[in-house]
Design a binder for these strands. Structure first.
Lengths: 236, 236
DNA sequence: TTCTCCTACGACTTCGGATGTATTGGTCAA
DNA sequence: TTGACCAATACATCCGAAGTCGTAGGAGAA
């Protein structure tokens, strides 16, 4: 418990680990309490001074643009403007080399493997104790991929590789294309999408063609199925 | 254990329960061992003589047509010709008044609530012990809705009611319409569907229009989303 | 029979997706 | 700084696919 946290924060003479290079981290969570609790824990346990926070995906992106990339990110799975792995995919497009830890109350196996395939450095439960949390983060920042004990990779093989490849494709979508895909996955017609985004229907179609080509789909229903298979957008 | 099974099979002088009226049951499972094991357990524990079995949804439907409806059904969730709640919905259309028990290895909450909303009498795990199995079935046949202990109805309210309503709508689909919807949910185009079913594309469109109207969708992508929301077809 | 439901098809309208092109903003080397 | 270049966004036009409507034959129930 206390010894575990001390062990980490006091190891100044130990051989230099990658975790030591994590000096500035960004927490993205819309729940203020959770945000503060996490920040405090990190400050104490890791001796971090620069803990930045953001309450939405958009805010996080703005902050990264203005203040630069952090050394690590902790990202809530259910943000007001990005449910499911969308936030992860979007952030990884912006900062591909920064390890992103997903945090969520949902420990469903399928969700975890979707997040890991999408390139998360790890996945931790919101109900985790402080020591376990700290230990998990430390291992992640040393390069390990950390998942909850309850998680079992199940069909770890071809299937997982295919999903990782799929996630990689999704992360190549531009912001506008991601918006459009999200609306497609809500069952909207091109005309409705063009209205919501205030662009011409022809433009929507251009983006859709680009999306289809990137994710290797031919019909829009296939695009919906592919997005759902990696849980890109979780239902509201 | 033994006493529990005996208690059920020997209660001949007890007040007449609905469970006693269950004389003939139908087991639908493609795994022969499971099928036999279930049949044997039922014969012993309930003293049933008429235990019918079928290895696929199609076989079950044929059998019901030729031999009449059983008093109860035990239905595997993952049949070769019907994954997800499709089998349940289809069977309920054919025999609306017969209690159907779902049996599966998958205890995911979402799947269970989807099945219950679709009108299952209960849901039991394949790994359940014999006594617990028997007891669960007995309670179901007395009219109770039985779910695994691990299951929690979560948002039991509007949302669940909406899903039940949706399942009701799906169960109004004709067999041909269900086939077509399944193909739509695989991302197939109308032309491909018409080829697979050996009918004209125009006919496919007619069915789709009927499907849309029944499930209250306007675009085919919405139809896919609605089907997925009740897990009508599980991915292969 | 008559009514209803399921299945089936063709003609017509609307929508979705491919292609070609233009404009903007950013990066990099000269 | 300027010009070359690339990525992203934007729009118009064309064509095939999706969806609507009217119609009709066959099976089963009232």
């Amino acid at each position: 418990m206390a010894s575990a946290t001390l062990q980490v924060s006091e190891r100044t003479s130990a051989p230099r680990l990658s975790a030591d290079r994590v000096r500035e981290i960004l927490i993205v969570d819309d729940h203020p309490l959770m945000c503060d609790a996490l920040a405090l824990t990190l400050k104490i346990s890791f001796g971090l001074k620069n803990v930045r926070t953001a309450r939405s995906l958009a805010a996080a992106q703005d902050q990264i643009r203005s203040q630069g990339a952090p050394d690590a990110v902790i990202l809530d799975l259910n943000l007001p403007d990005a449910r499911g792995s969308e936030g992860l995919v979007t952030l990884r497009r912006q900062i591909p080399d920064v390890p992103i830890t997903m945090i969520s109350a949902d420990l469903e196996n399928a969700m975890i493997s979707a997040a890991m395939a999408a390139g998360a450095q790890g996945y931790i439960s919101k109900s985790l104790g402080r020591e376990a949390l700290v230990e998990s983060l430390r291992r992640m920042w040393e390069g390990e991929h950390v998942t909850p004990d309850s998680y079992q990779p199940e069909h770890a093989g071809e299937e997982d590789a295919a999903r990782a490849e799929l996630a990689r494709r999704f992360s190549s979508l531009t912001p506008q294309q991601m918006k459009i895909l999200r609306l497609i996955c809500q069952g909207k017609a091109n005309k409705e999408i063009s209205y919501e985004l205030s662009i011409a229907e022809a433009t929507v179609k251009t983006h859709i063609t680009a999306i289809m080509s990137k994710i290797n789909a031919r019909r829009r229903t296939q695009a919906v199925l592919l997005a759902n298979s990696v849980r890109l957008f979780e239902p509201a």
